[in-house]
């Protein structure tokens, strides 16, 4: 009779208890979540259009279904959501007005807030700080060793001379533009970053035990990272 009991236990564990909309609340409440998400008819136009689905076992259709089934946490912990290339072809073709790429982006942020995804975004150490100090996502001085190497000798030599090339065009060597963003505007930008979730997102790394400095290893040797905000102030 032991087997029968075991089988019964299995049946008990697959019984769904939560209601559908409850488990999806965090996603559905996001203003960017499209109406079409619940209307998904599993047609797979998204998959058939997706550059990532062609390479990986990435499957936006299945992910929409998993969400629908309430398996949110599983998705957030997994690697799959990080394979999307954010090209939005799925959204432009979905016959039910859904935006799988957009929903996946919402999932990525959720995953980071929960702490799972932080190691997937090691460049945050560089780029988040760059925005805070200079006002740009990217500027010529943020590229770490190894970023350019792959592109061959021409590219490496070009980047060695990049400061000169930029000067020739009237651009600053280490700033994105011809003149830096004025300090006044930077103060305004920092006020925005401080008062919105940006700072919390940053603090979230430490809170989840992911040291920003350790993340730099993912990028190869690199000394751009500045001390934490607290010390700066």
């Amino acid at each position: 009779m032991a087997e029968i009991k075991l089988l019964e236990e299995k049946v008990g564990s697959i019984r769904k208890k939560e209601t559908m909309l409850e488990s999806l609340k965090e996603i559905l409440d996001d203003p960017r979540c499209p109406d079409g998400f619940l209307e998904c008819m599993q047609c797979a136009t998204c998959v058939a259009s997706c550059p990532a689905a062609r390479i990986y076992e990435f499957n936006p259709r299945e992910m929409m279904r998993q969400l629908y089934e309430g398996n949110l946490e599983e998705l957030l912990k997994g690697d799959r959501i990080w394979e999307c290339g954010q090209c939005y072809t799925c959204m432009s073709r979905c016959p039910r007005g859904n935006n799988p790429g957009g929903v996946i982006m919402i999932l990525r942020y959720l995953s980071c807030w929960r702490g799972h995804g932080l190691k997937k975004i090691p460049y945050a150490t560089v780029l988040m700080w760059n925005l805070y100090t200079k006002g740009y996502s990217l500027s010529p001085d943020v590229f770490w060793d190894g970023f350019i190497d792959e592109f061959g000798e021409t590219a490496v030599n070009m980047w060695k001379n990049m400061k000169e090339i930029r000067k020739e065009l009237g651009y600053l060597p280490d700033d994105a533009r011809m003149e830096p963003i004025p300090e006044e505007s930077m103060k305004e930008l920092r006020a925005i970053l401080d008062e919105t979730l940006y700072r919390k997102y940053w603090d979230n790394f430490e809170k989840n035990g992911v040291a920003m400095k350790d993340l730099l290893d993912h990028l190869g040797s690199f000394d751009y990272y500045k001390p934490a905000w607290k010390e700066e102030k």
Binding site: C43, A44, T45, C46, V47, A48, S49, A53, N59, T89
Partner: peptide, 24 residues
């Protein structure tokens, strides 16, 4: 069972076509 996302030609000059679709 799957709705194709796109249909494109082959690059080999055969005028054949590739239908991209997921078997759901």
């Amino acid at each position: 069972r799957g709705r194709p996302g796109e249909i494109i030609g082959t690059d080999d000059g055969s005028n054949n076509l590739i239908v991209r679709v997921e078997d759901t």
